[in-house]
Simulated scan of single mutants.
Amino acid sequence: MTTAEPRNYPFSTPERLEVEPMFAELRANQPLSRVRLPYGEPGWLATRYEDVKVVLGDPRFSRAASLEHDEPRMRPQPSLPGSILSMDPPDHSRLRRLVTKAFTVRRIEQLRPRVRQIADELVDGMLAAGPPADLVEAFALPVPVTVICELLGVPYADRGDFRYWSDAFLSTTRFPPEEVADCAGKMHAYLEGLIAQRRAEPRDDLLSGLVAARDNEDRLSEEELVRLAMALLIAGHETTASQIPNFVYTLLTHPDQLAMLRADLSLVPKAVEELMRFVPLGIGAGIARYATEDIELGGVLVRAGEAVLPALASANRDESAFPDADVLDLRREDTSHIGFGHGVHHCLGAPLARMELQVALDTLLRRLPDLRLADGESGVDWKEGLSTRGPERLLVTWEQ
């Protein structure tokens, strides 16, 4: 095993949506470096685009192996067996196939009118209440929460509970470990209750379909069913709820790009892809993969049993992959970012997230063409103590 003294990571405290400045130096001079995260054993940090794609896509890098190690991580809790995020094929493929049909591009496009209706109704509420408004509470959270509740079959009235549990799951320092464990237990019990309801009274929703796959086809265990529902509920709203205000803030602070987009809303899909590349969502790196054999990567020999952390934010700013990578360019032609990951763990809900982000931006720019920050930076409160970045409060205003 490698014995080089690792550096503490993250290298600095993340500020707003700024990308770690050390990444550029590492990409140029030390694309794989030894790091130690707040929890777990040391690992390698991969910073170049091509190396990160190898870590995410090469089957010689395993997620399941993390269960045999104290994996490097930002949060106190380690990965748990039964979670799709801790599986390799064929188990990962078996669970993914159960839900893939709900997230096909065709199926998601059928949901677009409903998402547009949700977004328009929320803007109606903002206009009725008058400016200023907290975009997070008034719009960014309700859009994906409503959609995932309807898709999965979770009561929207319970959003306060599962939002709190989700924050605990994503906590780095905001919640003490014992509260994280308590919230995980409560979410587990809550979903067990919903599953029992769907067994008694099946509905036309994704949770009922998963229950049928468990009971009628024996395609997953009971614990896998609960953990899959948990992953879908958390991931189905959290990332989009963070990225909507992230994208709006980024546009409002890049007025030239915002003006171009306002002048041509047909650019919204391309803008979403560029914003996915440009905006860093996490405060750390991607989840660790373990080498199952000795592998040369970035000029370094990674030994079997060593962890490698893919730095997605660094990869998306790699000049060798994206010319002028630190420049936001909504007309950029290359959309091969890895904001949704890569390989077998490529975000299952990417088509849904893309569509929600497109609808959100289109609706806000169409309905509120003079949207702007209400109080400058003083009207923005940034998340602290969570593994995802974004405003917790984003005050915006417009002309009445």
Rank of each mutant, 00 (worst) to 15 (best):
P78Y: 02
A304D: 05
Y164G: 04
F247V: 03
L80G: 04
K101I: 02
L32E: 12
L210P: 12
A263I: 02
Q77Y: 05
R97I: 06
F278T: 02
F169E: 12
E201V: 14
G385N: 10
A288V: 02
A184G: 15
M187V: 11
E121Q: 15
M187S: 12
A28E: 15
W398V: 01
K383S: 14
A24W: 05
L365Q: 10
L194M: 12
G82L: 14
R367M: 14
R214G: 00
I234P: 04
L191V: 12
G284R: 11
A119N: 13
F139I: 13
D318G: 08
G284C: 07
V52F: 03
A311I: 08
E121P: 04
P351L: 02
Q197P: 00
T335V: 07
L261Q: 04
R159E: 03
A271I: 03
L67F: 11
P323N: 04
P6V: 01
V396Y: 03
L151P: 03
G160M: 00
A64N: 07
G282H: 06
G193W: 07
L275T: 03
V19L: 11
I148M: 11
G185R: 14
K186L: 12
R16K: 14
G305V: 14
Q243E: 09
E109C: 01
G305Q: 10
A315L: 03
Q257Y: 00
L56K: 02
L361V: 07
A128L: 11
L45Q: 11
T253E: 05
M1L: 09
T3E: 04
E68C: 01
M260Y: 01
L364E: 03
G82F: 07
S221R: 09
R332M: 06
L122P: 06
V359Q: 09
L233T: 06
P6Q: 03
